[in-house]
């Protein structure tokens, strides 16, 4: 039997994880649905016109995804903070890779699918409720000549952009990839900071962002000539008095831009999960 990965053992572990956590997971999904219902209910109450607009639905989807997904990821290896639970987890006869991949499956794939299904289930109901409420308000106002247009259920993965004829999935793909990277960071944090993991990882991420801002503002800008970055990170427009903006610029080869974005889009999340695997291997209880 393979000591690194065996599909039969992996399936057993997936089933065991579900059996051990079924109640917790079902309750959590119920809680997410309730929070979405409450939030939409609040929006419908306070905003009579655009509560269920497609943008509001998409924002709700992504904010909810980031918050609940990060929180779930931060609890992923919380068992290792507790000696009895940690022993129970580490002593199960499966490899560390299988254990990491089970967590990956639940945290990244199953959570994402479940959250999206829950979101659309709630969204479907609340768009109907929102439209009914708005239609009632519209009838009460009796605005002559106006037509009531009901809101439709948003496709949260598709952003119609009037100004950009490019791929309508591009922006939201980046947001999703960013989500998977953030989730990976919280999963890694849950093994590094077993107690108060969510708070500690959030503080760490904020500190890193602050450090990056400081680096750009206090270290990078003073050594660069006057000007600013254009849309691409690898293109710097020089400010020369009396000349048009962007008439002079410094540009690094295009491939550097692709490599940089490719790294942020596709490498960060896997790197966090690989680090999680190695950290689990060296975990002691």
């Amino acid at each position: 039997m393979n000591q690194v990965f065996d599909f039969q053992r992996y399936s057993l572990l997936v089933r065991k994880h579900w059996g051990d956590n079924r109640n917790k997971y079902l309750l959590s999904l119920g809680a997410i649905a309730s929070l979405l219902l409450l939030w939409y209910g609040f929006l419908i109450l306070v905003d009579g016109h655009g509560a269920m607009a497609q943008d509001a639905q998409a924002i709700t989807y992504y904010v909810g995804l980031f918050l609940t997904g990060s929180f779930y990821a931060s609890t992923l290896f919380a068992d290792l903070a507790n000696k009895p639970k940690g022993i129970n987890f580490l002593a199960v006869p499966a490899s560390q890779l299988e254990k990491t991949l089970v967590m990956f499956l639940y945290c990244v794939i199953i959570f994402f699918v479940c959250y999206t299904c829950i979101f659309y289930a709630v969204d479907f109901i609340m768009v109907k409720v929102g439209n009914a409420v708005e239609a009632e308000r519209w009838r009460e106002r009796h605005i002559v000549g106006s037509v009531f247009t009901p809101h439709e259920i948003a496709n949260v993965f598709y952003k119609a952009d009037k100004h950009n004829s490019g791929n309508p999935f591009a922006t939201l793909t980046i947001v999703l990839l960013l989500f998977f990277a953030v989730q990976g960071a919280y999963a890694l944090g849950s093994i590094y900071f077993p107690a108060y993991s969510f708070i500690k990882v959030t503080i760490t991420i904020l500190l890193l962002i602050l450090f990056f801002i400081f680096l750009v503002a206090k270290v990078l800008y003073p050594i660069l000539p006057k000007g600013g970055f254009s849309n691409q990170l690898t293109e710097f427009n020089l400010y020369i008095p009396g000349k048009d903006w962007a008439s002079n610029y410094i540009q690094l080869p295009t491939w550097t831009d692709n490599v940089l974005f490719g790294f942020f889009k596709y490498v960060i999340a896997p790197v966090f999960w690989i680090a999680t695997y190695f950290r689990l291997k060296e975990k002691e209880v």
Binding site: D20, N82, P84, K85, I87, N88
Partner: peptide, 9 residues
């Protein structure tokens, strides 16, 4: 172990 954990199943 002396202190052990069993899931609620």
């Amino acid at each position: 172990p002396e202190e052990f954990y069993l899931p609620n199943i």
